[in-house]
Computed example of a mutant assay.
Amino acid sequence: MDTGTGPERAAPEWSGLPRGLLTVRRLLLVFWLGALALAAGVLLGVLAGPGWAAVALLPLALLGWGWVLLGRNWRSWRYAERADDLLISRGVLWREETVVPYGRMQLVEVTSGPLERRFGLASLQLHTAAAATDARIPGLEPREAERLRDRLTELGEARSAGL
């Protein structure tokens, strides 16, 4: 029986992000919180006494908590290419799903900073007519980022030419 809601869409085929992104984020966490713990321990130990140096354990506790949260956040990122749009989903407590129609894309760029290049990663940035629908996919493998850029640009040109 037809309910009048149109043809059912197949479930999108989701792709996750490479593990290298998680590695980079965890290395940054260890570097910054480790440096903070060391500096706090040394400074407080010298200036206020050895008992106060225990305050340096706080950044180490944050490091453990952050380690777990980064893993959960990394697992929450995913994207899917559909016939008319690109879906980007992320978030652990607050899920956010962005739908970017191909015909609305104005610019697709691939960026890679020094740390991303060192770990073989790149980010894809999508700019649309409305700034509110701009989207970003971080930590992709460079080949995948370039493939997506080329495909999205091609689909965007085809969709906007039909307007």
Rank of each mutant, 00 (worst) to 15 (best):
D2Q: 09
T3Q: 12
T3D: 15
T5L: 15
E8W: 08
W14H: 06
S15M: 03
S15T: 08
S15H: 14
L17Y: 13
G20P: 03
L22V: 08
V24K: 13
L27H: 03
L27T: 02
F31G: 07
F31S: 08
A35R: 05
L38F: 15
A39M: 08
G41K: 06
L43P: 05
L43I: 14
L43M: 12
A48T: 01
A54D: 00
V55R: 01
A56S: 14
L57F: 12
L57G: 12
P59A: 11
P59T: 12
L60P: 08
A61I: 11
L62F: 15
L62T: 00
G64D: 06
W65P: 00
V68H: 15
L70Q: 14
L70N: 14
L70F: 13
N73V: 10
R75S: 13
R75I: 01
W77T: 00
R78C: 05
R78I: 00
R78H: 06
Y79V: 02
E81I: 06
R82N: 03
R82I: 02
R82E: 13
D84M: 01
D84K: 10
D85V: 02
L86V: 13
L87E: 03
S89W: 03
W94K: 01
R95H: 15
E96P: 00
E97K: 04
T98H: 08
V99T: 14
V100H: 03
Y102W: 07
R104K: 14
M105G: 03
V108D: 03
V108A: 12
E109W: 04
T111G: 10
S112K: 01
P114Q: 09
P114K: 11
P114H: 11
L115W: 15
E116T: 02
R117A: 06
A122H: 07
S123V: 02
L124H: 10
L124C: 10
T128F: 08
A129W: 08
A129M: 03
A129P: 05
D134T: 06
R136L: 15
R136G: 05
R136D: 08
R143M: 01
R143A: 08
E144T: 13
A145C: 07
E146M: 09
L148T: 06
R149H: 11
R149W: 11
D150H: 12
R151H: 13
T153R: 15
T153F: 11
E154C: 01
E157T: 12
A158H: 13
S160T: 09
G162T: 10
